[in-house]
Design a protein around this nucleic acid. Structure first.
Lengths: 173, 173
DNA sequence: CCCGACTGTTCCGTTTACGGAACGGAAGCG
DNA sequence: CGCTTCCGTTCCGTAAACGGAACAGTCGGG
């Protein structure tokens, strides 16, 4: 893997918080040269250095290393979904996705097996989704839930891309 | 964090696979001295070294780091949560966790910053959570949401462990 | 036995990541 | 215009992480 990726991640996180390189270096107890080289990917940081920096950023290690590329991703006309986790329980199997819905397009999805339900939590944007003949709308922070054994649709309301988490529940037959 | 913890984890993973230190070092392309020191916690490994070893073990980086996020969320006796993803957009930063709540114990969590909200979707079991003075209850498939700028509690109802996804929303200041 | 092949640890020279200091550049202020 | 105070990068001596080799210990076979 590429240390440059980690570096870019650190720089992005730092700038999100509006902290300067100098202050972050001081707070984390590392040299400015160290942090500079780390962000540029020209150094090969030690565990101790990474730990100090991520701790000061208030970010768990995983935030630096989450690699979506290897994860299975489903692309549709409007929807891009990446599978985060599969969870199996005595009653049902669950699939948790992160979903993005591009604006301006409506995507239709065929019916799933009987009893399958979908649960959506919207992060950003406004999402219209649900049974194709009676979709529901949820703004950022909202939550929707419907039985998806009928054809259903996904669409972003307005021109902002929608980000959401999608939980699919498949009851055990 | 303690490099000795990482070392023990690597050794445990290696022995699980029945691979000797020598062969793992050779396969990963690192020196035996390096791997030996890493497993003993007497060295401060670089990102490159950790990467090579974990890749050869077929283990994601996160497997080495038992305790991902002590920061924004406080986890303790009843709740164990693992961070799945961090998502930042113009209005807020989101953290998506998979959460497990052990039965028989109630865990209290201190108030977060003003405006922080929590969204929970229950996979399995029955969860009672929300503001400590007025918790809500959700069965499998249910969804809860509350503003977490007050102390709040988590508890499993009944004797079944609860599995859920937890979305934390931090509004941008 | 004794040998070969293996285990994991330790020694050691080379490479390099480390922090402190010095650097040029960009604001903000009198 | 100076002067100060930040910013991020570069230079550099030191500390240490690196891989290769040598080490003792263990097992199995001839």
């Amino acid at each position: 893997m590429d240390p440059a990726v980690v570096g870019r991640r650190v720089r992005a996180l730092r700038e999100e918080q509006g902290i300067s390189l100098s202050t972050l270096a001081r707070l984390a107890g590392v040299g400015k040269a160290t942090l500079s080289g780390l962000e540029h990917g020209t150094r090969n940081p030690t565990l101790e250095t990474l730990w100090a920096v991520t701790a000061q950023l208030g970010v768990p290690f995983t935030a630096l290393l989450a690699e979506p590329a290897a994860e299975p991703t489903v692309h549709g006309t409007a929807v891009t979904a990446t599978l985060l986790e599969v969870f199996t329980d005595t009653d049902a199997t669950y699939e948790l996705y992160r979903m993005r819905v591009a604006p301006g397009v409506t995507q239709l999805s065929p019916a799933h097996a009987p009893g399958v339900t979908e649960h959506v939590t919207v992060f950003a944007g406004v999402l219209r989704t649900g049974p194709a003949d009676a979709p529901l709308t949820a703004p950022a922070g909202g939550h929707l839930r419907w039985v998806s054994d009928v054809p259903h649709s996904y669409a972003a309301v307005g021109d902002e891309e929608v980000a959401a988490s999608l939980l699919l529940r498949y009851p055990r037959r």
